[in-house]
Amino acid sequence: MDLYAESILDHAHHPFCKGPMKHPTVSHEESNASCGDSLELRLLIKGKRMHDIRWEGEGCAVSQAAMSMLAGHLKGMTVEKAAHLPPRFVFDLLKVPIGPRRTKCALLCLHALKNALRKLDGEPAQSWTETIGN
């Protein structure tokens, strides 16, 4: 299956939940230094659930589409569940095979989410190895 399937390009061109948020509970930025992709995630959390989510960023179609797809699924999700989302969750949303050279593009959104929630808990950021490995 083609990496640049219509659904990925659709999300890249018309992303979900992209834009500013005035008073997020937590905001966090992650970037892939090797390619210059960056995502800033803003979460509004109420009653231990994701009440609202907004993000801004730039980068390749895969990183932007993955963020858009993930954002569409986060609203209403418990913080507990979001903190334990596995990489498989993102790969399933993308529905195309992601090779090793694009893994970090695909998982930048998850890396940003995990570290936003860790920041909220006052914990140190997790490494890429932890994001990819768990």
Partner: peptide, 9 residues
């Protein structure tokens, strides 16, 4: 067009 998307294709 992001360079990584271009060079991937």
């Amino acid at each position: 067009v992001h360079p990584h998307d271009l060079t991937d294709i």
